[in-house]
Design a protein around this nucleic acid. Structure first.
Length: 571
RNA sequence: CGGGGUGUAGCUCAGUAUGGUUAGAGUACCUGGUUUGGGACCAGGGGGCCGAAGGUUCGAGUCCUUUCACCCCGACCA
């Protein structure tokens, strides 16, 4: 049977040059390799090769979800805004929600995630604890009108995501399912051939607990994650915790006193002025904290050697957002920039880092121009002040779980799972009757995985200067049969017969039967990244062909009669 | 959403300070020929509303105004 998986007939528009705006390897090679084409900011067409890769990733996800007992669904992409009003998220999501009216002037949004839709589908249809648990998912295009889409498939406005939602009668059952989903996600990433890390994360605007992100490790990743050198601990820097500090510097002995410190404002100046380690100084970060309808100045206090982690700060203050504050605004509030200390609780709300609880021998601002206190003992504040974890971990800090050390690495967030609890089921009044006949809101979990982002992530982790290197489970074609010179009868004949026998054996194979020269076709094969290319060329005179292994770059010379068996063995 | 940049051939870009033949190059494409183990060579050829609208001018890719799009830094981002 003849088919069209011939390079001479296929639509695979490769090119030597990448779009001028492409920065990431995945963006460059997916564009050059004829996988994707851009239509507008953050919008891409998937050309045949990309579509094949996407299908392969989806297959792996479907298989593992099926094994884990989850059922596939597909919800409408256009969703009524009324559901978003019901959950209260229409305001929170803001401009990322693309809204529009239909001909009857009803308001709709393009689904950026489908909690509301899924809960709406299930409510009043699942009404008894006997019907639980339930795990439903879909793989579908999502749309988020990102303020700044970038990096090709990595961060588009339109993207494909697998989003799953589970419904439970008890918290224990949710915990069980959550662990099962984590295990399934690990299997998926392992099968796709990715090196990854599961990290603790901030649950963000969607709310919930037990938040974990699946990070594909790559230098180009947008997220910074802290990982332990000896145990499994890993966390997004937004949520990373640390153990007790071991090498505490020698404390400066001094009785409580006020010192004149002319013009000494920064931590650097301060530690030099008093010749003490910044560990014993108190850093103040003043911010304006934004709530739904008000804002206020909040002072965050940390050890001089630490930095404020803004996501933690937002969580600690229960705020919507945190923005910078100007010196003028501080002065207006009676606060003296450069000389702020935690001993005056009257001017603004204070949040003190946990690591400062009961700290002694400290140096801090005296809330008076050009004066600092030394020998400060913060235990006086233990009962009155508000303490929280607001500091960002540093490389070299101790692991919170073992004797190891934390270091930073970059990751691409390809999955996020967390426990929603009853947030949406309560808002949408989705309830079931429990064993006592009492109405209870569903206890929910949610499990997301970025399919189109995974396409990019595979390439970020697997490429070289010549192009893509697809893993076995992601390759658009496993074998590329290349006829070096199509005018050569013998080469042609062998190419055609190998092409056919591999197809009959169920191998995904493409035949490069183009009239181009050897070098051109090799470069093209490397750019696209087929795992194996059978080179039928000059060596055929000696009855031999070569198998080019894309990942290693090696060329295995084999007798033409055993090449089929050899390939079947390799793949 | 703030700050900046760029729009000229399918793609990558010159040309715009100082307005003036028929708007260029490389690459890709078509024809013919030579070539066939690392993105070949020779010859010929097609391809453009110079992002859009308005204006200044005898004359605008070039100057002015408006607008749209795309990109970069930041903010944002289940």
């Amino acid at each position: 049977m003849r088919n069209r998986m011939r390079r001479s007939r296929a639509f695979i528009p490769t090119s030597k040059e990448a779009p001028s705006d492409a920065q990431l390897a995945s963006h460059i090679f997916l564009s050059r390799g004829g996988f994707i084409s851009q239509t507008a900011a953050g919008l891409y067409n998937y050309m045949p090769l990309a579509k094949r890769v996407i299908k392969k990733i989806e297959n792996v996800i479907n298989q593992e979800m099926s094994k884990a007992g989850a059922e596939e669904t597909e919800l409408s992409f256009v969703t009524p805004a009324s559901l978003w009003q019901e959950s209260g998220r229409i305001e929170k999501f803001g401009k990322e929600l693309l809204r529009f009216h239909d001909r009857k002037e009803n308001l709709f949004v393009l689904g950026p995630t489908h909690e509301e839709m899924m809960v709406d589908m299930v409510r009043n249809r699942v009404t008894s604890y006997k019907q639980l648990p339930l795990n439903l998912y879909q793989i579908k295009t999502k749309f988020r009108d990102e303020a700044r889409p970038r990096f090709g498939l990595m961060r588009g406005r339109e993207f494909i995501m697998k989003d799953g939602y589970s419904f439970h009668a008890t918290v224990e059952d949710l915990d069980r399912e959550f662990d099962a989903m984590e295990a399934a996600y690990k299997k998926i990433l392992t099968r796709l051939g990715l090196e990854y890390r599961i990290v603790e994360a901030d649950s963000g605007a969607i709310g919930g607990t037990g938040s974990k992100e699946l990070m594909v490790l790559a230098d180009s990743g947008e997220d910074t994650i802290a990982v332990c050198s000896s145990c499994e601990y890993g966390a997004n820097i937004e949520a990373a915790a640390r153990g007790l500090r071991k090498d505490i510097p020698e404390a400066p002995e001094a009785a409580f006193n006020k010192f004149q410190t002319l013009g000494v404002k920064s931590i650097d100046d301060l530690s030099q002025f008093f010749k003490v380690d910044p560990y014993y100084t108190i850093k103040t970060v003043a911010k304006r904290v934004v709530y739904e309808d008000t804002t206020e100045i909040v002072l965050f206090f940390l050890r001089g050697c630490d930095n404020l982690q803004e996501v933690k700060a937002v969580n600690a203050t229960d705020a919507l957002d945190i923005v910078d504050v100007t010196e003028e605004e501080l002065l207006e509030a009676g606060i003296v920039p450069g000389f702020i200390g935690p001993l005056d609780q009257s001017k603004a709300k204070h949040v003190i880092d946990n690591d400062l609880k009961d700290a002694k021998h400290m140096i801090c601002g005296a809330n008076e121009l050009d004066y600092h206190f030394v020998g400060v003992d913060l235990s006086v504040l233990s009962e009155v002040a508000y303490f929280a974890d607001i500091s960002e971990v540093n490389a070299g800090d101790a692991c919170p779980h073992c004797e190891g050390e934390l270091s930073f690495t970059k990751g691409i967030e390809v999955g996020h799972i967390f426990k929603l609890g009853t947030k949406y089921s309560e808002a949408l009044k989705a309830e079931f009757l429990d064993e006592n006949g009492k109405a209870q809101p569903f206890i929910m979990g949610t499990y997301g995985m970025g399919v189109s982002r995974l396409v990019a992530a595979v390439i970020e982790q697997h490429h070289d200067e010549n192009g893509c290197i697809w893993t076995k489970e992601t390759a658009p074609y496993m074998v590329n049969v290349m006829i070096s010179n199509i005018k050569d009868e013998a080469q042609n004949e062998l190419g055609e017969s190998l092409y056919e026998s591999l197809q009959n054996a169920g191998v995904e194979v493409i035949l490069d039967d183009r009239k181009d020269r050897f070098g051109f076709k090799m470069k093209d094969a490397e750019l696209i990244g087929f795992p194996y290319t059978i080179i039928i060329g000059k060596e055929l005179e000696n009855g031999q062909v070569q198998i080019y292994v894309r990942a290693s770059g090696e060329k295995i010379t084999v007798d033409k009669d055993i090449v089929f068996d050899k390939v079947m063995e390799l793949i």
